[in-house]
Design a protein around this nucleic acid. Structure first.
Lengths: 190, 190
DNA sequence: ATAATTAGTTAACTAAAGTTAATTTCTTCT
DNA sequence: AGAAGAAATTAACTTTAGTTAACTAATTAT
């Protein structure tokens, strides 16, 4: 796992041996089982989740129904709203698969950033990149129909189609499972 | 305008006189007229737009139709995708009103950050906050109907309802102008 | 001031998504 | 292996959004 993490980081900055050791000393890798819950609605938490391996999802409980709104797979980061506004979480996060994560929070960041300020800079750039990606997702969601969104997902995230159950994909696409089933049928028949 | 900007910044860090002067020396305030275009589809640009006063919007041209996807008003920041991925812009940005902006880009940032590293830290925190807000908007969009989205906008952004023309609000809500007109009628009759 | 253009509304119709419920298929648990 | 539970599909029906087009404000330009 070190190799995966270091390769990811080195897309942003070349690491010194000292930095690598500092990261390993922090014992950042956390192992979770499929189904493990990372964050519960109502809970206060300052953690963010970087996925090294596996898949996690965020979901809301609305009228007793699970509404999955996001999946996070390898090299993707889940930053919950509650970690930035100091309010109880409005959503849940759990593991879709056995997963290896790096969990960041103000404590671990402070430790790392004071010793190695370059990491703070990397995190700034990372979070700006993430910001524009999410904004683009939102724009894209607004300007496309459910069918187009599904086709887009087939093209851009074929892995997710395999990894996530269909009712979660449906709500990720902003529709009901029945509706996704119909869309798939419609597409298959043409 | 200085006062507005400094008050905004001071929610994140107390400024020294020296820092304030450095900002003013950079002549950061840019004045635009209603209708002025800040970014055109296809253009390469590294600029981000922080709105001190006024309103700007991002919109896509799809089948000859303008699709407005976002509005940015006082103390909000528009970070275009193209500014982070070095590709031609997929959308346009223009001014809905006469506006006063602070425009940031790697050059101005570098100047400021090397002299005052604290600003880099503020920008990291800002962009993380922005990230979770946009992610929450996306989640909220997915889990609500057009009517709920409109009601939510009436409640949370009544100013925008006043400031933006209705066909732009419609596409911001992910629907057609006709549909928004119907929703308004439906709501008025109950 | 008036014409031209653009924005907003309304209506009729079509297409697609939501809802409810039944059925089939697939997992999971003992 | 078999039962129980969950997930996916299908169907009938309802509701809402998209589409096309006509019409009525409201703006903008000359």
């Amino acid at each position: 796992m070190e190799k995966v993490l270091f390769e990811f980081i080195e897309k942003y900055m070349v690491l010194t041996e000292e930095e690598k050791e500092a990261i390993l000393d922090m014992q950042v890798f956390k192992y979770y089982k499929k189904g493990d819950v990372l964050l519960k609605e109502g809970q206060y938490s300052l953690d963010s989740y970087f996925v090294l391996q596996g898949c996690i999802r965020s979901y809301y409980l609305i009228d007793g129904e699970e509404k999955t709104t996001a999946f996070f797979t390898e090299m993707e980061t889940c930053v919950p709203l509650c970690s930035k506004n100091n309010e109880p979480s409005e959503f849940n996060v759990d593991c879709l698969e056995n997963s290896i994560l790096v969990i960041a929070n103000p404590d671990t960041e402070k430790k790392l950033f004071t010793e190695f300020p370059r990491f703070a800079n990397m995190c700034r750039i990372l979070s700006e990149e993430l910001l524009v990606k999410v904004q683009f997702n939102l724009d894209s969601f607004k300007t496309h129909t459910p069918e187009q969104r599904y086709l887009h997902m087939l093209e851009q995230r074929p892995d997710l189609i395999q990894r996530a159950p269909q009712h979660q994909i449906a709500s990720f696409l902003g529709i009901t499972p029945q509706s996704l089933s119909r869309i798939r049928k419609r597409l298959a028949s043409t």
